[in-house]
Protein backbone atom coordinates (compact mmCIF):
# COMPACT_ATOMS: atom_id res chain seq x y z
CA UNK A 1 0.00 0.00 0.00
CA UNK A 2 3.04 2.30 -0.07
CA UNK A 3 1.80 3.77 -3.31
CA UNK A 4 -1.40 5.02 -1.69
CA UNK A 5 -0.28 8.64 -1.17
CA UNK A 6 0.77 8.87 -4.81
CA UNK A 7 -2.49 7.36 -5.98
CA UNK A 8 -4.41 9.85 -3.87
CA UNK A 9 -2.46 12.70 -5.43
CA UNK A 10 -3.07 11.26 -8.90
CA UNK A 11 -6.78 11.16 -8.17
CA UNK A 12 -6.90 14.64 -6.66
CA UNK A 13 -5.09 16.09 -9.67
CA UNK A 14 -7.39 14.42 -12.13
CA UNK A 15 -10.34 15.43 -9.96
CA UNK A 16 -9.25 19.07 -9.86
CA UNK A 17 -9.40 19.13 -13.62
CA UNK A 18 -12.88 17.57 -13.60
CA UNK A 19 -13.89 20.17 -11.04
CA UNK A 20 -12.67 23.11 -13.12
CA UNK A 21 -14.77 21.92 -16.03
CA UNK A 22 -17.74 20.85 -13.88
CA UNK A 23 -18.16 24.41 -12.60
CA UNK A 24 -19.33 25.45 -16.07
CA UNK A 25 -21.94 22.70 -16.27
CA UNK A 26 -23.24 23.40 -12.81
CA UNK A 27 -23.50 27.19 -13.11
CA UNK A 28 -25.37 27.09 -16.37
CA UNK A 29 -27.62 24.30 -15.16
CA UNK A 30 -28.24 26.08 -11.88
CA UNK A 31 -29.50 29.15 -13.65
CA UNK A 32 -31.32 27.97 -16.76
CA UNK A 33 -31.60 24.20 -16.21
CA UNK A 34 -29.72 23.59 -19.44
CA UNK A 35 -27.24 20.77 -19.71
CA UNK A 36 -24.75 22.49 -21.95
CA UNK A 37 -23.32 19.44 -23.66
CA UNK A 38 -21.09 21.65 -25.77
CA UNK A 39 -19.15 22.61 -22.65
CA UNK A 40 -16.61 19.82 -23.17
CA UNK A 41 -15.88 21.30 -26.59
CA UNK A 42 -15.68 24.81 -25.16
CA UNK A 43 -12.99 23.35 -22.89
CA UNK A 44 -11.26 21.88 -25.94
CA UNK A 45 -11.28 25.16 -27.88
CA UNK A 46 -9.70 26.83 -24.87
CA UNK A 47 -6.78 24.43 -25.16
CA UNK A 48 -6.38 25.22 -28.84
CA UNK A 49 -6.71 28.93 -28.14
CA UNK A 50 -3.84 28.75 -25.68
CA UNK A 51 -1.79 26.70 -28.11
CA UNK A 52 -2.46 29.18 -30.91
CA UNK A 53 -1.08 31.99 -28.76
CA UNK A 54 2.06 29.96 -28.12
CA UNK A 55 2.52 28.96 -31.74
CA UNK A 56 1.76 32.17 -33.54
CA UNK A 57 1.66 35.15 -31.25
CA UNK A 58 4.76 34.58 -29.18
CA UNK A 59 8.31 34.64 -30.52
CA UNK A 60 9.89 31.21 -30.61
CA UNK A 61 11.67 30.24 -27.44
CA UNK A 62 9.62 32.46 -25.15
CA UNK A 63 10.06 31.17 -21.62
CA UNK A 64 7.02 29.38 -20.28
CA UNK A 65 6.84 31.63 -17.23
CA UNK A 66 6.10 34.51 -19.55
CA UNK A 67 4.17 32.53 -22.13
CA UNK A 68 1.82 30.78 -19.73
CA UNK A 69 -0.16 33.81 -18.54
CA UNK A 70 -0.60 34.94 -22.14
CA UNK A 71 -1.65 31.46 -23.19
CA UNK A 72 -4.23 31.38 -20.39
CA UNK A 73 -5.59 34.71 -21.57
CA UNK A 74 -5.71 33.43 -25.14
CA UNK A 75 -7.50 30.26 -24.11
CA UNK A 76 -10.00 32.20 -22.04
CA UNK A 77 -10.68 34.66 -24.86
CA UNK A 78 -11.42 31.84 -27.30
CA UNK A 79 -13.55 29.80 -24.90
CA UNK A 80 -15.51 32.74 -23.59
CA UNK A 81 -16.17 34.11 -27.06
CA UNK A 82 -17.52 30.78 -28.23
CA UNK A 83 -19.59 30.23 -25.10
CA UNK A 84 -21.11 33.70 -25.17
CA UNK A 85 -21.86 33.45 -28.88
CA UNK A 86 -23.46 30.05 -28.31
CA UNK A 87 -25.62 31.49 -25.55
CA UNK A 88 -26.65 34.48 -27.60
CA UNK A 89 -27.33 32.84 -30.92
CA UNK A 90 -28.11 29.21 -30.11
CA UNK A 91 -29.54 28.98 -26.61
CA UNK A 92 -31.26 32.30 -25.95
CA UNK A 93 -33.71 32.01 -28.86
CA UNK A 94 -34.68 28.64 -27.37
CA UNK A 95 -35.08 29.83 -23.79
CA UNK A 96 -38.83 29.22 -23.79
CA UNK A 97 -38.78 26.22 -26.14
CA UNK A 98 -39.25 22.68 -24.79
CA UNK A 99 -36.22 21.39 -22.88
CA UNK A 100 -35.18 18.97 -25.60
CA UNK A 101 -34.60 21.68 -28.18
CA UNK A 102 -31.64 23.38 -26.46
CA UNK A 103 -30.28 19.97 -25.48
CA UNK A 104 -30.18 18.79 -29.08
CA UNK A 105 -28.75 22.15 -30.08
CA UNK A 106 -25.98 21.64 -27.54
CA UNK A 107 -25.13 18.25 -29.00
CA UNK A 108 -25.10 19.70 -32.51
CA UNK A 109 -22.90 22.55 -31.38
CA UNK A 110 -20.54 20.11 -29.73
CA UNK A 111 -20.09 18.17 -32.97
CA UNK A 112 -19.74 21.36 -34.97
CA UNK A 113 -16.98 22.66 -32.70
CA UNK A 114 -15.09 19.37 -32.88
CA UNK A 115 -15.30 19.32 -36.64
CA UNK A 116 -14.37 22.99 -36.91
CA UNK A 117 -11.13 22.45 -34.99
CA UNK A 118 -10.51 19.27 -36.93
CA UNK A 119 -10.96 21.03 -40.25
CA UNK A 120 -9.46 24.43 -39.65
CA UNK A 121 -6.83 24.31 -36.94
CA UNK A 122 -3.50 23.65 -38.69
CA UNK A 123 -2.52 20.09 -37.86
CA UNK A 124 -5.76 19.76 -35.93
CA UNK A 125 -6.51 16.37 -37.42
CA UNK A 126 -3.88 14.86 -35.17
CA UNK A 127 -2.89 15.55 -31.60
CA UNK A 128 -0.90 18.74 -31.30
CA UNK A 129 1.93 18.82 -28.82
CA UNK A 130 1.55 21.36 -26.07
CA UNK A 131 4.56 23.22 -24.62
CA UNK A 132 5.96 22.00 -21.34
CA UNK A 133 7.06 23.74 -18.19
CA UNK A 134 10.73 22.95 -17.67
CA UNK A 135 10.79 22.19 -13.98
CA UNK A 136 10.60 19.39 -11.50
CA UNK A 137 9.65 16.68 -10.89
CA UNK A 138 9.30 17.43 -7.20
CA UNK A 139 9.38 14.76 -4.53
CA UNK A 140 7.48 14.98 -1.28
CA UNK A 141 8.14 11.78 0.59
CA UNK A 142 6.88 8.98 -1.61
CA UNK A 143 4.85 11.39 -3.74
CA UNK A 144 6.13 12.73 -7.03
CA UNK A 145 4.62 15.90 -8.44
CA UNK A 146 5.38 16.34 -12.12
CA UNK A 147 6.09 19.66 -13.74
CA UNK A 148 2.86 19.57 -15.71
CA UNK A 149 0.85 19.12 -12.53
CA UNK A 150 2.13 22.18 -10.72
CA UNK A 151 -0.06 24.52 -12.69
CA UNK A 152 -3.17 22.47 -11.95
CA UNK A 153 -2.22 22.18 -8.31
CA UNK A 154 -2.07 25.96 -8.02
CA UNK A 155 -4.82 26.93 -10.43
CA UNK A 156 -7.66 24.77 -9.11
CA UNK A 157 -7.76 26.11 -5.53
CA UNK A 158 -7.16 29.69 -6.65
CA UNK A 159 -9.97 29.47 -9.17
CA UNK A 160 -12.35 28.01 -6.63
CA UNK A 161 -11.50 30.66 -4.06
CA UNK A 162 -12.03 33.42 -6.61
CA UNK A 163 -15.34 31.91 -7.65
CA UNK A 164 -16.55 31.54 -4.07
CA UNK A 165 -15.65 35.16 -3.37
CA UNK A 166 -17.35 36.31 -6.52
CA UNK A 167 -20.59 34.47 -5.86
CA UNK A 168 -20.90 35.30 -2.18
CA UNK A 169 -19.43 38.74 -1.88
CA UNK A 170 -19.99 40.68 -5.07
CA UNK A 171 -23.20 42.28 -6.18
CA UNK A 172 -23.19 40.41 -9.49
CA UNK A 173 -22.51 37.18 -7.62
CA UNK A 174 -25.52 37.73 -5.40
CA UNK A 175 -27.54 38.54 -8.48
CA UNK A 176 -26.40 35.21 -9.90
CA UNK A 177 -27.51 33.33 -6.80
CA UNK A 178 -30.84 35.10 -6.87
CA UNK A 179 -31.34 34.30 -10.54
CA UNK A 180 -30.58 30.64 -9.86
CA UNK A 181 -33.06 30.47 -7.00
CA UNK A 182 -35.95 32.39 -8.56
CA UNK A 183 -35.43 34.03 -11.95
CA UNK A 184 -38.72 35.95 -12.07
CA UNK A 185 -38.32 37.42 -8.64
CA UNK A 186 -34.71 38.25 -9.48
CA UNK A 187 -36.04 40.43 -12.28
CA UNK A 188 -38.28 42.18 -9.76
CA UNK A 189 -35.12 43.10 -7.85
CA UNK A 190 -33.85 44.87 -10.93
CA UNK A 191 -31.45 42.07 -11.88
CA UNK A 192 -30.84 41.81 -15.62
CA UNK A 193 -31.13 38.04 -15.76
CA UNK A 194 -30.07 37.85 -19.41
CA UNK A 195 -26.81 39.45 -18.44
CA UNK A 196 -26.41 37.09 -15.49
CA UNK A 197 -26.87 34.11 -17.81
CA UNK A 198 -24.20 35.45 -20.15
CA UNK A 199 -21.87 35.89 -17.17
CA UNK A 200 -22.51 32.32 -16.05
CA UNK A 201 -21.62 31.01 -19.51
CA UNK A 202 -18.54 33.22 -19.66
CA UNK A 203 -17.29 32.24 -16.21
CA UNK A 204 -17.81 28.55 -16.91
CA UNK A 205 -15.94 28.91 -20.18
CA UNK A 206 -13.07 30.76 -18.52
CA UNK A 207 -12.71 27.98 -15.96
CA UNK A 208 -12.84 25.40 -18.71
CA UNK A 209 -10.08 27.24 -20.58
CA UNK A 210 -7.88 27.22 -17.49
CA UNK A 211 -8.66 23.52 -17.17
CA UNK A 212 -7.66 23.03 -20.80
CA UNK A 213 -4.31 24.73 -20.27
CA UNK A 214 -3.81 22.43 -17.28
CA UNK A 215 -4.72 19.49 -19.51
CA UNK A 216 -2.20 20.54 -22.15
CA UNK A 217 0.57 20.96 -19.61
CA UNK A 218 -0.25 17.70 -17.84
CA UNK A 219 -0.59 15.47 -20.87
CA UNK A 220 1.64 17.38 -23.27
CA UNK A 221 -0.94 17.48 -26.05
CA UNK A 222 -4.33 18.73 -27.12
CA UNK A 223 -6.62 17.22 -29.74
CA UNK A 224 -10.04 17.92 -31.14
CA UNK A 225 -11.68 15.04 -29.32
CA UNK A 226 -10.23 15.74 -25.91
CA UNK A 227 -13.36 17.46 -24.63
CA UNK A 228 -15.74 14.62 -25.17
CA UNK A 229 -14.89 12.03 -22.52
CA UNK A 230 -13.58 14.53 -20.02
CA UNK A 231 -16.72 16.61 -20.55
CA UNK A 232 -18.85 13.60 -19.72
CA UNK A 233 -16.76 12.98 -16.62
CA UNK A 234 -17.01 16.59 -15.54
CA UNK A 235 -20.75 16.49 -16.04
CA UNK A 236 -20.81 13.36 -13.90
CA UNK A 237 -18.80 15.20 -11.27
CA UNK A 238 -21.31 18.05 -11.33
CA UNK A 239 -24.19 15.64 -10.81
CA UNK A 240 -22.28 13.74 -8.14
CA UNK A 241 -21.58 16.94 -6.22
CA UNK A 242 -25.11 18.23 -6.64
CA UNK A 243 -25.80 20.02 -9.88
CA UNK A 244 -26.35 23.73 -9.42
CA UNK A 245 -23.91 23.94 -6.52
CA UNK A 246 -20.47 25.29 -7.39
CA UNK A 247 -18.75 23.77 -4.37
CA UNK A 248 -20.46 20.52 -5.21
CA UNK A 249 -18.86 20.63 -8.66
CA UNK A 250 -15.37 20.79 -7.17
CA UNK A 251 -16.07 18.19 -4.49
CA UNK A 252 -17.75 15.94 -7.04
CA UNK A 253 -14.70 16.28 -9.31
CA UNK A 254 -12.29 15.39 -6.55
CA UNK A 255 -14.37 12.41 -5.38
CA UNK A 256 -14.64 11.15 -8.94
CA UNK A 257 -10.92 11.57 -9.62
CA UNK A 258 -9.90 9.77 -6.43
CA UNK A 259 -12.44 7.02 -7.07
CA UNK A 260 -10.98 6.42 -10.52
CA UNK A 261 -7.43 6.32 -9.21
CA UNK A 262 -8.38 3.95 -6.41
CA UNK A 263 -10.33 1.69 -8.74
CA UNK A 264 -7.38 1.55 -11.13
CA UNK A 265 -4.93 0.86 -8.37
CA UNK A 266 -6.69 -1.51 -6.03
CA UNK A 267 -9.85 -2.96 -7.50
CA UNK A 268 -8.01 -5.83 -9.13
CA UNK A 269 -6.40 -6.78 -5.81
CA UNK A 270 -9.77 -7.67 -4.32
CA UNK A 271 -10.16 -11.46 -4.62
CA UNK A 272 -12.38 -12.39 -7.51
CA UNK A 273 -12.25 -8.91 -9.02
CA UNK A 274 -9.07 -9.25 -11.05
CA UNK A 275 -11.06 -9.15 -14.28
CA UNK A 276 -12.87 -5.97 -13.22
CA UNK A 277 -9.91 -3.84 -12.21
CA UNK A 278 -7.49 -1.65 -14.03
CA UNK A 279 -7.74 1.67 -15.75
CA UNK A 280 -10.19 0.55 -18.39
CA UNK A 281 -12.69 -0.40 -15.67
CA UNK A 282 -12.13 2.74 -13.62
CA UNK A 283 -14.79 4.57 -15.62
CA UNK A 284 -17.29 1.86 -14.86
CA UNK A 285 -16.56 2.08 -11.15
CA UNK A 286 -16.83 5.84 -11.30
CA UNK A 287 -20.35 5.49 -12.63
CA UNK A 288 -21.20 2.80 -10.09
CA UNK A 289 -20.20 5.32 -7.44
CA UNK A 290 -22.41 7.93 -9.07
CA UNK A 291 -25.39 5.60 -9.04
CA UNK A 292 -24.84 4.63 -5.41
CA UNK A 293 -24.56 8.27 -4.36
CA UNK A 294 -27.67 9.22 -6.29
CA UNK A 295 -29.63 6.34 -4.73
CA UNK A 296 -28.77 7.57 -1.26
CA UNK A 297 -28.78 11.29 -2.00
CA UNK A 298 -30.69 11.99 -5.21
CA UNK A 299 -29.73 15.65 -5.00
CA UNK A 300 -26.00 14.82 -5.03
CA UNK A 301 -23.41 15.31 -2.30
CA UNK A 302 -23.94 19.02 -1.72
CA UNK A 303 -27.12 19.55 -3.68
CA UNK A 304 -30.20 21.06 -2.11
CA UNK A 305 -33.60 19.53 -2.45
CA UNK A 306 -35.49 21.39 -5.10
CA UNK A 307 -38.68 21.45 -3.02
CA UNK A 308 -37.94 24.83 -1.52
CA UNK A 309 -38.13 26.32 -4.95
CA UNK A 310 -41.87 26.85 -4.53
Amino acid sequence: MHELPQQLVNGLLLGSMYGLIAVGYTMVYGIIQLINFAHGEIFMTGGFGALAVYLWLLPEGTTMWLALPLMIVGGIVVSVTIAVAAERFAYRPLRTAPRLAPLITAIGLSLALQQAVWAWFPGGKNSRTFPEIEAGPYHLGSVTIQSGDIFLLAAAPICMAVLAYFVRKTRTGRGMQATAQDPDTAKLMGINTDRIIVIAFALGAAFAAIGAVAYGLKYGQVNFRMGFIIGLKAFTAAVLGGIGNIYGAMIGGLVLGVAEAMATAYMSDIPGMSQLGGQAWADVWAFVLLIVVLLVRPQGLLGERVADRA
Binding site: Q177, Q181, D182, D184, A310
Partner: peptide
Protein backbone atom coordinates in the same frame (compact mmCIF):
# COMPACT_ATOMS: atom_id res chain seq x y z
CA UNK B 1 -41.43 47.66 -6.64
CA UNK B 2 -43.39 44.45 -6.59
CA UNK B 3 -43.77 42.08 -3.67
CA UNK B 4 -45.08 39.03 -5.47
CA UNK B 5 -47.84 36.65 -4.56
CA UNK B 6 -46.50 33.71 -2.57
CA UNK B 7 -43.74 36.00 -1.26
CA UNK B 8 -40.94 34.47 -3.35
CA UNK B 9 -38.15 35.28 -0.98
CA UNK B 10 -34.76 33.73 -1.92
CA UNK B 11 -34.82 30.69 0.36
CA UNK B 12 -31.12 29.80 0.39
CA UNK B 13 -29.96 33.30 1.20
Amino acid sequence: AHSPEGRHIFPRM
